[in-house]
Amino acid sequence: MSAPNKSYDPVEVSALQPEELDRARDEALAAIASAADLDALKRARLAHAGDRSPLALANREIGALPPQARAEAGKRIGAARGAVGQALKARQAELEEERDQRVLVEEAVDVTLPWERGARGARHPLTTIRERMADVFVSMGFEVSEGPEVEAEWFNFDALNFKPDHPARTMQDTFFVGSEDTGLVLRTHTSPLQIRSLLTKPLPVYVVAPGRTYRTDELDATHSPVFHQLEGLVVDEGITMADLRGGIDAFVNGMFGEGLTTRMRPSYFPFTEPSAEVDMRCFVCRGASAEPGGEPCRTCSSEGWIELGGCGMVNPRVLVACGIDPDRYSGWAFGLGIDRTLMFRHGAEDMHDMMEGDVRFTLPFGMEI
């Protein structure tokens, strides 16, 4: 067994010399004191207190010293490393305090000022014009009727005098819920609400039925598979076509202003007899665009008239289907397109604008909430 090592080469352990330790400590303290922020302090810690720092490497050389010299060298290294550690801790606290004070100043929030708000939304113009159209009839004593959008074929077709072979009862025109054998469809018009009203309300009946409807149309500038209608129904004793004409004139004057005339053109609908298409004088040009030398009118395409919708006297077959005596009662019904009304009333040219939900389309109507 060899004797203890009592001699060593000073060159090999030069890092343990007091002057070298003092130099490494002073360099570390200077780097720590000059650290301007926490990132710079982190770099100083790695350089002067990390595993590869001069003081850490010197600590590893203690084993090369003879036993009688190790204690003194260990004390010197421990004191130097302790001084560096204390300096790091103190500087860390100082920089964190500076950071917190700076954040309080730079990110201060004045809670007394109005906070930033998101862009305000707007009611969709279809909703507003639907309510306005219904309000015109409510002011005349009508009642608003609502019902399901998924309807039985009997309400949507049979009770309204659609024959079994009518083309509207095929999947080319109607959305069936499941197969055609289910007997359930997405309502193709709001007329089923007329049947429901006649079956559930006591006579006389004065109702208006706005709502969403569905047909298998492709979405383009003027068509949509989902659109909106407003239908009206009157069933009472002694109702005539004159009452129908008067009701429509009252609606036109209430919706578009006084002084607009209407006209009726013969037409056909299974649930009315006789039936007619209703036109109104253009509320923009008042018919002047159709006169010789008149200025072109974009709203009515210079025709002087705008198509409103269909109407007619309630077919006696519809009254019978609802258990009403057609010899005692008569009535009239009409249907208007809400989407079309919005398009020609406000100059909307593309159905896509109504369906995409872009607030830039709804905000110009001025109906913010």
Rank of each mutant, 00 (worst) to 15 (best):
F334L: 05
G294R: 04
D165Q: 14
L203W: 09
C297V: 00
D279C: 03
F157C: 00
G347M: 09
E19T: 07
L113G: 04
R52D: 13
I32A: 03
R60N: 08
R212E: 05
F269M: 00
N5K: 15
T128Y: 04
T272E: 00
V234F: 00
P148K: 00
M264R: 02
A119D: 12
A33D: 14
L41N: 05
L336Y: 03
W154Y: 07
L160S: 00
H124E: 10
S139C: 03
T261K: 06
E218I: 14
F175I: 02
F155C: 03
T112F: 10
S275D: 04
S191G: 06
V207G: 04
M1K: 10
V111M: 12
I369T: 11
P364H: 14
G304D: 06
G254Q: 07
P266F: 07
P114V: 09
E96P: 05
S14G: 01
R60C: 14
G178C: 11
R81L: 06
D135W: 03
G121A: 15
D158C: 14
I32V: 08
E97M: 10
A79D: 11
P66Y: 09
E149W: 05
D135S: 14
A28D: 06
G254V: 02
A24S: 08
A73Y: 10
E273K: 01
R196M: 02
F365A: 10
L65G: 13
D173L: 08
D339V: 01
Q172P: 05
G293E: 07
P10K: 08
G257I: 03
R328T: 14
R120G: 13
L260P: 08
P326N: 13
G50M: 10
G309P: 00
G246F: 00
L184G: 05
V138K: 07
D220I: 09
A290R: 09
G141A: 08
R328I: 06
V320Y: 08
V284P: 08
R99N: 12
H346K: 13
L186Q: 03
V320T: 15
F137A: 01
E12S: 15
R76K: 11
C300G: 05
D325P: 06
F283P: 02
A242G: 11
V234P: 01
D325Q: 13
A108H: 12
Q68G: 11
M133Q: 05
R130G: 09
R187I: 00
M280P: 08
D158L: 04
E106M: 11
T188H: 02
P125C: 07
M264A: 10
E20F: 07
V234D: 00
P326H: 03
V13S: 09
Q229F: 02
G178W: 05
F157H: 04
R265N: 09
G141M: 01
N5I: 13
A24R: 04
K75I: 15
P326G: 05
R360K: 12
W305Q: 15
T216Y: 08
G293C: 13
C285A: 13
L55N: 02
P316L: 10
Q172G: 09
M133N: 02
E131M: 12
D100K: 12
K163H: 13
